[in-house]
């Protein structure tokens, strides 16, 4: 029991010492204020920079937790010098606890300096401000020195610089194309399917043949179809309309009875049929503008005969031309 109590006492002494040690180690840190400054930076290559190059600078800065960045203190985008352009400046709060805050700053510059030989240049120092209630803090991002290279071909001796095949200046590489062979096949299949469907639809509607038939051939087929309903007054009206439409299409305008003479003069191949054309227009005038009578089968047959004859004449004229 004595041993145990002694051991316990020793342990208590050791435990108290460890606690003291911890207090000694930790307390100065807790007591010391967080220092403001740059904790991390990435500025990129500071040589071999050519005219028009983009220069990107990243910084991670630390400030005490109470401080926050004043966005207005970031330099505005625009010209910083006659050769230097600040394209963009951004900031982001990336970490914070009750002691500090970490901000990441990102600056994008573009240089337009066009040196004739290697030239040392400097991006000036930038100052970023932080505020906390009535206090202010500022961090200076140091000036950055770099060298710019000229855009000048190095012409090695012995290599021709004229325009022959050994010329130093050569065409750029071809851009790599994205492989679309798989897609191409699908596109072809889809296009052919759509075309097939369109052709089927057109042939079902009768449009396909309409392209190949002459106006009078089309009229012939329509009149033939309407002849089956010859007892209906509207059938003869539609039949006359179909033949009129054929004449209009051939004349490329609405053709009327009093214009037939001029029309026949312009289409000499129709001259032998002028009497029949006149008869058709006379019949049409009688039916459409006065009597509105239903057509007899004979009337339909005459229309069919006229259409057949004029389609034949038209075909012959096309062959000759």
């Amino acid at each position: 029991m004595v041993v145990n109590s002694l051991l316990k006492h020793k342990m208590q002494k050791i435990g108290g010492g460890v606690l003291w040690l911890l207090v000694l180690i930790i307390s100065p840190v807790q007591a010391e204020e967080v220092r403001s400054g740059i904790v991390e930076q990435s500025l990129g290559r500071d040589f071999g920079i050519l005219v028009g190059d983009i220069i990107e600078h990243y910084y991670v800065v630390q400030v005490p937790a109470a401080y926050s960045l004043t966005p207005a203190s970031l330099p505005p985008s625009g010209e910083m010098d006659y050769w230097l352009q600040l394209l963009n400046s951004e900031y982001e709060l990336i970490a914070e606890n009750n002691q500090f805050r970490h901000y990441r700053l990102h600056f994008t510059f573009q240089t337009f300096y066009a040196p004739l030989d290697v030239r040392a240049l400097t991006i000036p120092a930038l100052t970023v401000r932080f505020i906390a209630d009535d206090k202010a803090e500022q961090i200076t991002l140091p000036a950055w020195h770099f060298t710019m290279s000229p855009l000048k071909e190095i012409a090695p001796r012995g290599v021709a610089s004229d325009s022959n095949q050994n010329a130093f200046m050569k065409a750029d590489l071809r851009p790599k194309t994205i492989p679309i062979s798989g897609l191409q096949q699908q596109v072809w299949i889809l296009s052919l399917t759509l075309l097939g469907l369109l052709l089927i639809w057109m042939s079902l509607k009768g449009y396909f043949f309409a392209f190949t038939r002459s106006p009078f051939q089309q009229a012939f087929h329509q009149v033939k179809r309407l002849r089956k309903h010859h007892y209906e007054p509207s059938a003869f009206y539609q039949a006359l309309q179909a033949v009129h439409l054929a004449f209009n299409r051939l004349a490329k305008q609405a053709l009327f009875a009093h214009q037939v003479d001029t029309f026949v003069l312009q289409h000499a191949e129709l001259k032998p049929y002028q009497q029949k054309i006149d008869d058709f227009y006379q019949l049409s005038t009688e039916v459409l503008y006065s009597e509105q009578k239903a057509g007899s089968l004979n009337d339909f047959d005459q229309l069919l005969q006229l259409c057949r004859q004029l389609a034949g004449v038209e075909k012959l004229a096309l062959k000759k031309s």
Binding site: Y237, L240, H244, Q253, A254, F256
Partner: peptide, 8 residues
């Protein structure tokens, strides 16, 4: 108009 409007 005269050349475009058909009748019938």
């Amino acid at each position: 108009v005269l050349n475009t409007i058909p009748s019938p």
